[in-house]
C-alpha cells in the first residue's frame, strides 16, 4: 500500500503567479523518495505545502493528498493534520534561539505526551535517550546548550531526534544537508537512512543535489519551473533520462560531483 500519495497539487501566490503546477508523487513505507530541481523550481514549496507551512502570500490552489490511506488535503484544503514531521535546511535557524535544547525537547515531549495521554513523567530521560538514538554521544552536554552553541550538524541531529520523537509515518527532509561539511553531510544522510530502516517510515527528500539524491533515494521526482518533468527510479533517471532538462541537470552535477 502506498504511504503518501499526492495528486494534482498546484501552489499559487496571492498575486496570481503559479509556483507549482499539477504535481503528483507517491511514497511507499520504508522508501526514500527524492525531489530534485534547481532553486526556484518549486520543490521546497511542494514540501512545505504538505504540512501547511507555506509562507504568507503563498497557498495551495488545488490538489489532493493522503497519508496511510487517510486524505489530509482535499481539493487544496487541509482537512486534517497528517502524521508527518519535517526537518529543514539551516538547522540552527530552525531551533528557537532563546531556549536550551533541553527546553525545546521537553516542550515537544510535553506536547506529545498531552496528545497521547502518556503524561509528563520521565521526559528528561526520554530527551536524553532521543539524543542518543540519533548518535549524539554526550546527550547531557548537548541538552544544556543553546542552538547557536552547537554545530549545524549537531543541530540537524537534534532536529531529526525531535522529528522522530513524534513517531511520524512520513518524514519530510527539505535540503537537510545543504550548507553542512561533506563528512557531516554523509553522517546526516546515514542517520536518515538508518532511521528509515529501523522504523519503517517513508521519507520525502528534497535536494538540489543529484549526487546526494543518488546516494539516498530509490525513486526521484525531477522538477523544473514548478512542473514535474519525470518521476522514476533513480537508476533509470541516471542512465536513461527521458527528459531533456533531467539530462542537463545530470550533466551539470557530474561536472562538479556533490561539492556543496
Amino acid at each position: 500500500m502506498t504511504l503518501l500519495s499526492v495528486e494534482g497539487l498546484s501552489i499559487r501566490t496571492a498575486d496570481g503567479h503559479t509556483l507549482v503546477r499539477d504535481f503528483a508523487l507517491d511514497v511507499n513505507p520504508g522508501e526514500i523518495v527524492g525531489i530534485v530541481g534547481e532553486s526556484g523550481s518549486g520543490k521546497t514549496m511542494t514540501a512545505l505545502s504538505l504540512l501547511g507551512l507555506l509562507p504568507a502570500g503563498v497557498s495551495v490552489a488545488c490538489g489532493d493528498a493522503s497519508l496511510s490511506g487517510r486524505p489530509f488535503l482535499r481539493d487544496g484544503r487541509v482537512c486534517e493534520r497528517p502524521n508527518a514531521t519535517m526537518i529543514f535546511q539551516n538547522p540552527t535557524a530552525a531551533l528557537n534561539p532563546t531556549m536550551k535544547i533541553e527546553a525545546q525537547l521537553i516542550r515537544l515531549l510535553t506536547f506529545l505526551g498531552k496528545r497521547r495521554g502518556t503524561g509528563r513523567r520521565g521526559r528528561r530521560a526520554r530527551a536524553e535517550a532521543l539524543l542518543e538514538s540519533v548518535g549524539i554521544h554526550e546527550p547531557r552536554a548537548v541538552l544544556r546548550r543553546y542552538p547557536h552553541q552547537l554545530s549545524g550538524g549537531m543541530n540537524q541531529r537534534v532536529m531529526v531526534a525531535m522529528a522522530v520523537a513524534a513517531e511520524p509515518s512520513l518524514l519530510i527532509a527539505d535540503e537537510p544537508t545543504t550548507g553542512l561539511d561533506v563528512t557531516v553531510q554523509a553522517q546526516i544522510l546515514e542517520l536518515i537512512r538508518s532511521t528509515v530502516a529501523s522504523r519503517g517510515i517513508g521519507v520525502l527528500f528534497v535536494s538540489h543535489d543529484m549526487g546526494v539524491i543518488a546516494q539516498t533515494c530509490r525513486r526521484v521526482a525531477v522538477m523544473y519551473h514548478g512542473e514535474l518533468r519525470e518521476f522514476a527510479d533513480v537508476d533509470d533517471v541516471f542512465h536513461a533520462p527521458r527528459d531533456a532538462y533531467t539530462e542537463e541537470l545530470l550533466a551539470s552535477t557530474l561536472e562538479q560531483p556533490s561539492e556543496r
Binding site: L51, A56, T85, M86, F88, A93, L95, N96, P97, F111
Partner: peptide, 18 residues
C-alpha cells in the same frame, strides 16, 4: 512569527498560544 523556528513549531502542530 515568520522565522524558521516558528515554522518548526508549526510543523509539530504546537498550539498557536504556545
Amino acid at each position: 512569527l515568520e522565522s524558521d523556528y516558528a515554522r518548526t513549531s508549526r510543523s509539530f502542530g504546537y498550539p498557536p498560544g504556545s
